[in-house]
Write a protein that binds this DNA or RNA. Structure first.
Length: 239
DNA sequence: GCGACAG
DNA sequence: ATCTTGTCGC
């Protein structure tokens, strides 16, 4: 197959060709460990005015959500942010931090889109195909597509995100009163499973735990010291 | 040509 | 993404 990460020459047409090729290798069938043993969240941030790309990974026990390990990788930034080509800018750092983990996760949650992309190869899908790992994209904003209908306010409500007639993902209300998450399969995860898996690992915050924790590591802010213990970070309340 | 545009 | 205090709302 063609190189999943060609050097940046300023030619987006070449990258587009790579995306079209890799998108064909994406599998939208559930093909991950059952039951899931470990999951991981990945996110990217920048330092030095963007000169340095920092990727964060947090490996969690899928049952207890205990943090097994967390890592940060820093690499020189190699290309600018161009809508639709985000993965070529951030994937190198993600692959680097993945290699730093003691073991690969059974499922990866990536901050960004899966197949909810103009050419069906958002960063979560690109990551999945490049690593062979099952992955799901969890984004905060739509890149492309339209919601099928208005979303209910209740926690867990979802509606398809589609481009024309085809569904490319979902809008998921992970938390009442918050803007919905845009969830889409990355690789080896079926469309109906994506929102289920995200909700399974979402507690009292808008972002699911894997991505939320990776977010805090990637963002250059210190680990919050004002919250309660980890035990209730995942508290869903009693009723 | 115009507007949209993950992080 | 990132620069950043206080402020509004559940």
């Amino acid at each position: 197959m063609s190189n999943a990460l060609p050097d940046w020459t300023g030619d987006t047409a070449a990258l587009r060709a790579v995306q079209d090729d890799l998108a064909q290798r994406v599998s939208l069938r559930d093909d991950f460990a059952k039951p899931l043993r470990t999951i991981a969240g990945f996110d990217v941030g920048f330092e030095e005015d963007g000169a340095i790309t920092r990727a964060a990974a947090v490996l969690l026990d899928a049952d207890t959500l205990d943090v097994i390990d967390q890592r940060v990788a820093r690499l020189p930034t190699r290309m600018p942010y161009i809508p639709g080509f985000l993965s070529f800018r951030e994937l190198p750092a993600l692959l680097e931090v993945l290699a730093m983990l003691p073991a690969a996760p059974d499922l990866a949650f990536i901050d960004g889109h899966g197949i909810a992309h103009p050419r069906r190869l958002g960063i979560a899908a690109h990551f999945g195909v490049a690593t062979g790992l099952p992955s799901i994209g969890v984004a905060k904003k739509i890149l492309t597509g339209e919601p099928r209908m208005a979303l209910h306010e209740m926690r867990g409500a979802f509606t398809p995100l589609r481009r024309g007639k085809e569904q490319i993902g979902w809008l998921l209300r992970s938390k009442p009163g918050c803007l919905p998450l845009i969830v889409s399969p990355g690789h080896r995860v079926a469309m109906p499973s994506a929102p289920e898996l995200v909700m399974r690992f979402t507690g009292k915050y808008r972002l699911p735990e894997p991505t939320r924790l990776a977010d805090r590591l990637a963002s250059r802010r210190d680990p919050g010291m004002r919250d309660a213990g980890s035990a209730d970070l995942f508290d869903r309340g009693t009723g």
